[in-house]
Design a protein around this nucleic acid. Structure first.
Lengths: 221, 221, 221, 221
DNA sequence: AATGAATGAGCGTTCATTCAT
DNA sequence: TATGAATGAACGCTCATTCAT
């Protein structure tokens, strides 16, 4: 529990790129804008996240917003970049404790991810990303890249557990594990009908993942 | 394979409501509009699906579109209703063959659903629905209702396989199975990176589902 | 009081023109349309009185409305014609009882008109007519013509009371009397702030009219 | 006559509110918009006074108009406010010369008001206001408030002439005087049939007002 | 670094009108 | 008589963008 709280504290909502030159004030405003945009995206969706709406949420005038982000596309991309980067950092920070058995590590990773899924931010944000990525190559690449990185730990664990399997199969197992959990967003994410049953779902997930990794190709497929 | 072709043939993209009065011409136009709207939604997304865009796609004038759908909301709701209804029909038609073992039936259901996920329609449509449902109660209800119906068969199978488990656990298992597959949409759906590996993923999924249902609560959770 | 009730009963809201040919059904529909239009005009104003709104209020389809009134202008003119005609009839029916003194007759006429001003119909309708007549020659003519007829009785009475005055002056007196009462519409008409004081205002009006007619040009103007 | 000319010169068509911030150019544009709107309202009426029409009259694009007045309602309200304010100022400036007898002052007030009635602006504007106020609470309040202020001088004069009368009666007398003149708008205002006879009507009005105030309740009511 | 002003395109909607059925 | 279908124009409004200040 403390750990969760810590994570919430440590992991920022967005990770901004280094920004050469400029005063501190500008940097603050830049952050404020992206933060406001993210807030609207989460609370109201992608469509209402207009330049005007963002400017209003920042208490600034439209003209100034376009000073920081000349076009809406700029803003959207930097926003998604920053927010996706935060998830990358989150995933990279995930336990690599070699003292634990692979099963234990798998269990912990899944627990962390499923915790994250229940946050408002993740529940609201990712479906938007999935929808956008269907029609926007930039978002598509960025999202698939994020997931690719997120599967690295899983791939390692699967390798440890099943070095007998070919790469393709191991990757597919890791993908299944990752996708499986993502799928729960819509059903057990923030404010979703099965949110209260997330602990049970978490147990089920982990058992399913462990047993399929252990057993795949050994019993009658 | 033949069966897939048959299904594609039988199951329509949308199931339109009865429409009282009006000429045949009007009925055709009505269909044409919803079909055009669905096409745009799939090909370009929700935002570009404007009244003007739809009218243009139909080769008709905006005014006439509003004759059929006085407001955009009317159109959107009737569209989602029609398209979701088609999935309901699809799911309701799913195998209930009592001659098969529950495991076999589970395998077949999953195969059908994962086939469906690879279609352009499903891959494109559902992420939009998930995103919309985060900010629109109507869509939320409609989507959750659809999934609830879709889980009925799964619940039956889980019950057959594990009548020893309490309802809540069985429901969670069915939900996990359903959510798991939905999650694959983003990774192995139409035009997605893992689409070619769907057969392998399908195998993995089914084995994971079977083993977790069989084993949950029996081995060390 | 009874008399007022009677008048309300006798005087129709609109007086339709004779209409050659056609079945009774058509005549009824024709009336229904104008009646609905008048209702909307009174309750909601001129702007909301659209063809669609009228058709809806009649429970009929737009197409049928245009069968009876090909253009909106047709409808508006026939409506104003009919409604103005009803006022003409009302004014023509006004007391000519030669047994009464001119003062008494003036008092009665004024009482009737001021009663009428308090009706919702008159309070709502006439300001619309005044506004319209500023920009529409047809309405202008029709309205001025109505008032011209309405002043006839007044002119007669003024003549009886002041045969010494030249025509122009007598006409101006009649006009003043008529205009004076019309002006009360905005202040003491239906739902207006001074509506409850209409009896007192009526007294004042009549006394002002009598005294000015009697005294004009005799005292030091 | 000189006085009239002066007044026309001094009293502006509209009195704009203070406007915080912004460049001089913006202030000019703001004025230009309201002036154009008033012009259309007077020349063509309320209905044709559309956002597009106003923008066109200003030689600007619709988008810019909404920069100054985000909604049409904003524009209408600020317009009516500004124009009504100008009348308030006009009325407040009205003669209070205590050297004159109440009768003389009454005569002068009436002369000023009846002069004003003959202006195009007043003749065209007020019927629109009366019509609007029947269906719009904001306009209703604003208009009745204006008239209430306009009656203040009249109430004072009536009090001086008839301190023996109760308040209610004095108020009714003032209202009658005011309403009486307003009523002349439709008949003797700008371009109306009796406009040329306004001097005679003015005489009649004043005599009627003076005699009813002096005589009310003294002779046989 | 920020605001003010303006454009141009597009949005959903309402409307009067026309005509086939 | 009456409805159904379609058009074309206009409405108020929102938006991303540009540029002067």
């Amino acid at each position: 529990m403390d750990q969760l709280a810590d994570r919430q504290f440590i992991v920022p909502d967005m990770v901004l790129p280094e920004r050469e030159g400029g005063y501190a004030k500008g940097r603050e405003t830049y952050e404020q804008i992206l933060r406001a945009a993210l807030g609207i995206l989460i609370e109201e969706g992608y469509r209402p996240m207009s330049m005007r709406r963002i400017a209003a949420a920042c208490g600034m005038k439209l003209g100034n917003l376009t000073y920081y982000f000349p076009t809406r596309e700029d803003l959207v991309r930097e926003l998604l970049d920053a927010v996706i980067r935060s998830y990358e950092i989150e995933f990279d920070a995930i336990v690599h404790d070699p003292g634990l058995s692979p099963e234990r590590r798998l269990g912990e990773i899944c627990a962390l991810i499923l915790e994250d899924i229940r946050t408002k931010k993740t529940t609201r944000l990712f479906p938007e990303l999935w929808a956008l990525s269907n029609h926007d190559a930039f978002v598509f690449d960025r999202v698939q890249n994020l997931y690719s990185r997120a599967r690295e730990s899983l791939n390692e664990i699967v390798l440890e557990m099943r070095s007998d399997l070919p790469l393709e199969t191991r990757e597919a197992l890791a993908l299944f594990i990752s996708a499986s959990m993502e799928g729960l967003t819509v059903f057990a994410g923030y404010d979703k009908p099965f949110e209260p049953r997330m602990p049970l779902l978490s147990e089920i997930s982990v058992e399913a993942f462990v047993s399929v990794v252990k057993g795949f190709g050994r019993t009658a497929g």
